[in-house]
Amino acid sequence: MNKSIIAILLLSSAAAFANEAADEQANRTPFIGSMSRSEVKAAVADAKAKGTLRFDEYAANRQQASGSARTRAEVRSEGIQTARSHAAHELY
């Protein structure tokens, strides 16, 4: 019984890694671009000149700071009052 369970586990683990050989072959195929190196350099220089070149993905996801109607002191005092009254939320 134990030998058959071990055999099943070994075969199932082998099947889990069976596709790695195909992935390795796919990674060996060379990339063939549609633009030459000089065309890419010219496109990068053009984007730098226009100011549209982004160096990181974080720049596209930055959010503008929203103006708050309350000051930090107001929010802090409200938090202190809530903690003292032990009423953090109506549902608790």
Score class of each variant (00 low, 15 high):
Arg76Ala: 13
Asn19Gln: 06
Arg72Gly: 00
Glu90His: 13
Asn27Leu: 11
Met35Leu: 12
Ser66Asn: 01
Ala49Cys: 02
His89Lys: 12
Leu91Gln: 09
Arg72Ile: 05
Asn27Val: 01
Glu20Phe: 10
Arg28Asn: 13
Ala69Thr: 15
Ala15Phe: 13
Pro30Asn: 04
Ala65Arg: 11
Ala42Gly: 03
Ala47Tyr: 03
Ala87Asn: 09
Ala43Gln: 12
Lys41Trp: 05
Ala49Asp: 13
Ala21Leu: 10
Gln64Arg: 10
Ser85Leu: 11
Ser66Met: 06
Ile32Phe: 01
Gln25Ala: 12
Met1His: 05
Val40Asn: 07
Ala88Cys: 09
Ala21Gly: 12
Ile8Arg: 14
Lys3Val: 05
Ile32Asn: 12
Asp56Lys: 05
Val75Gln: 11
Arg62His: 01
Glu39Phe: 08
Gln81Lys: 15
Glu24Gln: 10
Ala73Cys: 03
Ser13Tyr: 05
Ser4Trp: 04
Asn61Met: 12
Glu39Trp: 05
Arg28Thr: 06
Ser68Arg: 11
Ala14Val: 06
Ala16Phe: 06
Ile8Thr: 05
Ser4Lys: 11
Arg72Met: 08
Leu91Tyr: 01
Gly33Pro: 06
Lys50Ser: 06
Ser85Gly: 01
Ala22Pro: 00
Ala45Met: 03
Ser68Ala: 15
Ser85Glu: 14
Asn2Arg: 08
Thr52Ser: 12
Ser77His: 07
Glu78Trp: 06
Phe31Val: 14
Thr29Met: 08
Ser12Tyr: 01
Ser4Cys: 02
Lys3Ala: 08
Ala42Pro: 02
Glu78Cys: 01
Met35Gly: 03
Ser34Thr: 14
Arg54Lys: 15
Val40Leu: 15
Glu39Met: 11
Lys41His: 08
Arg70Gln: 15
Ala42Gln: 15
Thr71Pro: 03
Ile6Ser: 04
Asn61Glu: 14
Pro30Phe: 01
Gly67Met: 03
Ala83Gln: 08
Ile6Met: 04
Met1Glu: 04
Ser66Asp: 03
Ala65Cys: 02
Arg54Met: 10
Leu11Met: 12
Ile6Lys: 09
Ile80Thr: 07
Lys3His: 05
Thr29Gln: 15
Met1Gln: 09
Glu39His: 09
Phe55Asn: 08
Ile8Leu: 11
Val44Ser: 01
Gly67Pro: 01
Ala42Val: 01
Gly67Leu: 07
Asp56Cys: 10
Ile80Asn: 07
Ser36Asn: 11
Phe55Glu: 15
Ala14Pro: 00
Ala60Glu: 14
Ala60Gly: 06
Thr29Asn: 10
Asp56Ile: 01
Asn19Val: 02
